Amino acid sequence: MSLEQPPPARRASDHDRERAAAVIQEAHSDGRLDFEELDERLTRVYSAKTEIELRTATADLLPVAHGADAELTIRAKHSAQKREGAWTVPERVTALPEHSSLKLDFTDAVVRWAEIHVEARPKHSSIVMIVPEGWSVDLDQVDMVGSTAKNKATAPKPGGVRLHITGEARHSSITVRHPRKRHWWWPWYRK
């Protein structure tokens, strides 16, 4: 009998380290870290090999919510909406697509919260959320009315962000997955 090993932690890029360093420097400028803590944490960040090490170094530096920065409402009617790239993720997102498609890609997003709440209320729509490896996803508190919900995100890790999804889906689909991998022999291939 063999025990299945969890996949290795996702390796951190230079871009990941720079984002984590920015969080630490902001905490220092706010007075939440002194010079000694700033130096110690920046050393940890720039020597980090995995994304989990970066999140551990910044986990207690959640920013103070400033009005609209803590919430985002996305409305779409008969259209397609996307949030991708290096967008700043608020603590609460309300998704209200109607006869539309909505894509929330958290892969390269600036995430400063240990837990993100998404209230999803799609009507005749689709919502796709793309999360990095290691995130935990709670999709059980969405009321489904003639709809489907799929959580394809696997292997949550300690210290990973928790994505908590609530709401009501009417004749819609909600899918949470990891980024699609490109094959090295054909960089334009997509699953």
Rank of each mutant, 00 (worst) to 15 (best):
G167C: 06
S2K: 14
A80T: 15
A27P: 03
R92F: 07
A114G: 07
E98Q: 01
W188K: 15
V176K: 03
G159E: 03
A86L: 15
G146D: 13
K82R: 11
A155Y: 04
T58K: 07
A59C: 08
K77G: 15
V161G: 04
D39Y: 00
D140M: 12
P8D: 12
V45S: 02
L102W: 11
L72C: 09
A21Q: 12
V111Q: 03
W186R: 12
L38H: 03
T94G: 04
T50Y: 06
E98M: 04
D105N: 00
A149S: 12
I116D: 00
S136P: 02
M1R: 15
R19H: 13
D140I: 05
S172V: 05
I24G: 13
E40G: 05
K123Y: 10
L62A: 13
A76L: 06
P63Y: 04
S126G: 11
A27E: 11
D34G: 02
V131S: 01
R41S: 02
H117N: 02
N151S: 15
Q25W: 14
R11P: 15
T56Y: 05
K49I: 11
S2E: 13
P97N: 02
P90A: 03
V161T: 09
L62N: 15
A95Y: 09
H124F: 09
H183P: 12
K157A: 14
V142W: 03
E115T: 05
S2I: 12
I52H: 10
E37K: 07
E84K: 10
H124Y: 04
E18C: 09
T154P: 07
T175S: 14
K152D: 13
D34Q: 04
A9V: 06
R75T: 15
A114Y: 04
I24H: 13
A65R: 08
K181D: 11
P63E: 00
H117V: 00
L33K: 11
E71M: 03
H124C: 06
K123W: 10
S79Y: 07
T43N: 10
S147R: 05
P122N: 01
P158D: 15
T58L: 08
V64D: 13
D34N: 02
S173G: 12
V111M: 00
V128G: 05
W87F: 03
L163P: 00
D30A: 13
K103P: 04
S147H: 05
K152H: 15
S172E: 05
W135L: 02
T148G: 14
G134F: 01
A109S: 01
A65D: 07
R162P: 07
M1Y: 13
M144Y: 12
M129R: 03
R10W: 09
L72T: 11
T73V: 07
V145W: 11
G146Y: 15
A80V: 15
N151A: 15
Q5Y: 11
A9K: 09
G159V: 04
E98T: 02
R83Q: 07
R190N: 13
P122F: 04
V176M: 07
T56P: 08
H28I: 10
V89R: 13
K152Y: 14
M129Y: 01
E26M: 14
A27R: 08
W186L: 11
T154G: 10
L3H: 12
D140A: 12
E168P: 04
T56K: 07
D39V: 04
V161H: 06
W87E: 05
E84P: 10
R121Y: 01
W113N: 00
W185E: 14
I130R: 02
